[in-house]
Design a protein around this nucleic acid. Structure first.
Length: 380
DNA sequence: AAATCGGGGAA
DNA sequence: TTCCCAGATTT
C-alpha cells in the first residue's frame, strides 16, 4: 500500500463492513415477514425455521406459526401436538421440539425480557453459536457473529480459504476472521447484509461477482477461482429403503394412526402404522391390536426422498370389523400413542409430509366403495 | 470427526 | 437427476 492509498484508507475508511452496509442499504432485503415488528421472539422463531431451509419455504410457515403463537407465552403454553401441527411439512422436527422446550425455559429463566447475550441463547436447545449470533444481532441491533452457509461461502471465497466448511479447523478460522470484520455499530444490518450478500450475490453457482461490493478484494474472484470455493467434500451414496404402511379403516369410517415414539426419524409425529419387510400380517394385526384385518387394496408405491436415504412406501388399505370399544378395552391401548381419526374432520396433529399427502389422497377417495368392491371380489 | 435429521427448489 | 439451503445435536 503506497502513501496515497494509506491516507485514503485512513480518512475515508472504506472498510469491509462499510462496503457491505452501503450495499445493503441499496440492495438488501427488508420486506421479509420477520423483518417487520422485530422482537426477539419473532427473530428467534424465524432463525430456527431458517436452519437448513430456504427463505421462500419458510415464509408461509412463519406466518401461520405466528398467528397460532403470537408471543412466547402462547408457544410455551401450547401442547407439543399443536406445535408439531404447525411445523408439519417443514422437516427437521427436532427444531420444533427444541423450540417448544426452549420457550418454556425462556419463560422460566427470563420472565421479564429475553436475554441480550449470545452466551445465554446458546444454552437453550436448538440454538448454536451462529443462530445465537443472529438472534442477538438482529433482535437488539448489537454486534454478534453469524456464520451460516451463506456467510461462510462469502468469507471462504474472499480469503480463498482451503478446506471443507464442515471441518472444525476451518470453522474456527472463519469465526476468528468474522470477529475482526465485525463492526461495532449496525449489528442488525450487518448480519442481514452478510446473509443477503451470500444469498443474492455470492451464490453457490454463478456468483454475480460484477455486482459484488467487495469484489476488488476477493481473492477467489481475482484468481478466477470463485466456482472452485468452498471446496466440496466427496459424498457417499445414499441407501434405498422400503416399507409398507397400513391404512386401517374401521366400521366408524375412522383411520388408525400411531405416534412415533423414541425414534430418530419423525419422533412424536403421527403416522400410519408401518410394516417392516420382515414382519408378517399377523405381527401387524398384533401391533395394531385388532382381531380382524382384511386387506382391501394395495395402493401404488411412491418414493420419498431424504438427504441420507430414500424410502419406497407401499400403502396397504385394509379394514377391521372390530368394535371400537373392544380395542379400547385392551390394556395395551394408549390413546397418547394410538388414535382412530375420522377422515372428514381435519386433524390438529403433526404429520410428516408423505403422511400428510397420503391423508389428503384418502380424503378425496370413496373408501366405502373400495371396501364394498373388495368384499364383492372376495366372495366371487 | 462423522453421522443424523426433512423437505423444497434450482439447474 | 444432483446439490444445497439463515445448523444443531448425538455418537
Amino acid at each position: 500500500m503506497n502513501k496515497l492509498e494509506k491516507m485514503n484508507d485512513e480518512h475515508h475508511a472504506e472498510t469491509f463492513s462499510s462496503k457491505i452496509l452501503k450495499w445493503f442499504n441499496q440492495h438488501g432485503r427488508t420486506h421479509l415477514p420477520w423483518q417487520q415488528q422485530i422482537t426477539p421472539y419473532r427473530v428467534w422463531v424465524s432463525e430456527i425455521m431458517l436452519q437448513q431451509t430456504q427463505v421462500s419455504t419458510v415464509i408461509p410457515y412463519f406466518l401461520k406459526f405466528m398467528s397460532a403463537f403470537p408471543v412466547l407465552e402462547a408457544l410455551a403454553g401450547a401442547s407439543i401436538d399443536d406445535v408439531l401441527f404447525y411445523w408439519s411439512g417443514l422437516g427437521y422436527y427436532s427444531r420444533a421440539r427444541n423450540l417448544h422446550l426452549a420457550a418454556q425455559k425462556l419463560q422460566t429463566l427470563y420472565p421479564n425480557e429475553l436475554p441480550k447475550e449470545v452466551e445465554q441463547w446458546v444454552q437453550l436447545p436448538g440454538i448454536g453459536l451462529s443462530t445465537a449470533g443472529a438472534i442477538v444481532s438482529i433482535s437488539f441491533d448489537l454486534p454478534a457473529i453469524v456464520l451460516d452457509g451463506n456467510i461462510k461461502r462469502v468469507l471462504i471465497r474472499h480469503f480463498l480459504l482451503p478446506g471443507y466448511p464442515e471441518q472444525a479447523a476451518l470453522k474456527k478460522q472463519l469465526y476468528s476472521i468474522a470477529a475482526t470484520l465485525l463492526p461495532q455499530l449496525n449489528g442488525r444490518n450487518y448480519s442481514q447484509a452478510m446473509m443477503d450478500l451470500g444469498a443474492m450475490i455470492c451464490t453457490k453457482r454463478e456468483p454475480k461477482c460484477t455486482e459484488c461490493p467487495i469484489q476488488t478484494n476477493c481473492q477467489a474472484y481475482i484468481q478466477h477461482l470463485q466456482t472452485q470455493y468452498p471446496m466440496v467434500k466427496p459424498k457417499k451414496p445414499i441407501p434405498k429403503l422400503s416399507a409398507k404402511w397400513l391404512i386401517l379403516l374401521n366400521k366408524h369410517h375412522e383411520i388408525l394412526i400411531q405416534k412415533v415414539i423414541d425414534l430418530k426419524l419423525w419422533n412424536q409425529l403421527w403416522v400410519f402404522p408401518e410394516w417392516p419387510a420382515d414382519k408378517t400380517m399377523k405381527d401387524m394385526r398384533i401391533q395394531c391390536q385388532v382381531n380382524t384385518l382384511l386387506i382391501l387394496k394395495k395402493l401404488p408405491v411412491f418414493r420419498h426422498h431424504f438427504t441420507h436415504f430414500s424410502l419406497d412406501i407401499e400403502p396397504i388399505f385394509a379394514f377391521t370389523e372390530d368394535q371400537l370399544s373392544k380395542i379400547e378395552q385392551n390394556q395395551q391401548w394408549d390413546s397418547t400413542q394410538w388414535r382412530w381419526v375420522s377422515l372428514n374432520q381435519p386433524i390438529h396433529l403433526g404429520m410428516p409430509l408423505p403422511v400428510k399427502k397420503l391423508w389428503v389422497q384418502l380424503v378425496q377417495t370413496d373408501l366405502s366403495s373400495i371396501r364394498h368392491q373388495a368384499i364383492k371380489e372376495a366372495i366371487q
